[in-house]
């Protein structure tokens, strides 16, 4: 009887491990809350700053997204405020899309070689090489772009060499490792038995790669490309060094242009807080933020649609 009561008492008391568990739970929860608070804070801060161009300075959305003259604080010949962000938006999208278009075939080829054709050599040589490419600081990419790519473009295609094309070449190398490593992951995630079934039906290795493995991995490869594009879209320094930084509508691939990020990095030290010039830059930052959120949502959407059903 006595023993039973003792046991009952013990059962009602919190054990040491339960306390530890609660402590760990709280610790990770608070870390999560902190990060969420920071992210939310950044978004709210940029949104209030960025939107004040429209609410405080009364710039119309049409002038901002449709205007082609960027010189905040001055007026266009037709009398509007010169805060047309269209050249930068076009510039950003052009370098991003071109870089993705150039990178993707190379990345898929490399990834197929690493996983399907020669996994041993892939793991030994190509894996470290792609990891190294990720680790190179972007200023180094920009420097190489400035001293190698820009002269090359100038000699081959004419113009000053600064422009969308040079930006594309530099971004191509920068986003290649991102797309390669994520494509490798998605190819590795294709179950082995798909390959076996294909080979057992009389398919060659090449047919198996092309018609089964790549097809089954398509959602993963799309995710990889979107991630690469997000990186290209957000890259500032290296692009700024080779694109020419003229806030003009690019009329060809070798004319100096600019991107959202390049205008931001070039202008952020030179404006006064609260002025129109400053607010306009925040609006560019807001566009960047919204775009990267969009890329993230796209990745989630593709990932959910393409997850392998077990």
């Amino acid at each position: 009887m006595q023993q039973n009561q003792k046991l009952a008492k013990q059962l009602m008391k919190k054990s040491k491990t339960a306390r530890y568990e609660r402590f760990g739970h709280l610790l990770s929860l608070s870390a999560l809350l902190l990060i969420m608070a920071i992210v939310l804070g950044i978004i709210i801060f940029i949104a209030t700053k960025g939107l004040s161009t429209f609410f405080k300075d009364h710039i119309s959305l049409k002038d901002f997204f449709g205007g082609v003259i960027w010189n905040p604080g001055t007026q266009t010949p037709s009398g509007q405020q010169a805060v047309g962000a269209l050249p930068m938006i076009v510039g950003s999208f052009l370098v991003t899309i071109l870089a993705a278009v150039v990178s993707t075939p190379f990345a898929i080829g490399t990834a197929v070689y690493m996983t399907e054709i020669s996994p041993k050599r892939g793991a030994k040589i190509l894996q470290p090489v792609t990891e190294l490419l990720v680790g190179i600081p972007s200023v180094v990419y920009g420097f190489i772009g400035l001293s190698v790519v820009v002269p090359f473009v100038r000699h081959t295609f004419g113009g000053s060499g600064f422009g969308i094309l040079s930006g594309t070449f530099v971004l191509f190398v920068m986003i290649l490792p991102t797309i390669v490593s994520m494509t490798v992951d998605s190819l590795k995630a294709v179950p082995k038995y798909y390959r076996q079934a294909s080979l057992a039906l009389g398919a060659t290795k090449w047919q198996t790669i092309w018609k089964v493995v790549l097809r089954a991995a398509t959602p993963g490869i799309l995710t990889a490309i979107v991630f690469g594009m997000a990186r290209a879209f957000g890259e500032a320094l290296a692009v700024q060094m080779v694109i020419g930084n003229a806030a003009l509508m690019p009329h060809n691939l070798v004319s100096p242009a600019s991107t959202l990020t390049s205008v931001l990095t070039a202008g952020m030290g030179n404006t006064v807080m609260g002025s129109l010039q400053n607010d306009a830059l925040w609006s560019l930052a807001l566009v960047l933020l919204v775009m990267s959120l969009f890329f993230n949502l796209l990745v989630h959407f593709i990932g959910r649609k393409g997850a392998f059903k077990k």
Partner: peptide, 19 residues
């Protein structure tokens, strides 16, 4: 290729392609 067309194989786990 011809050999595997003449001698087909069905595996332990059902393994249809995800198509």
């Amino acid at each position: 290729v011809e050999l595997r067309k003449s001698i087909g194989m069905v595996f332990q786990q059902p393994n249809p392609f995800p198509f």
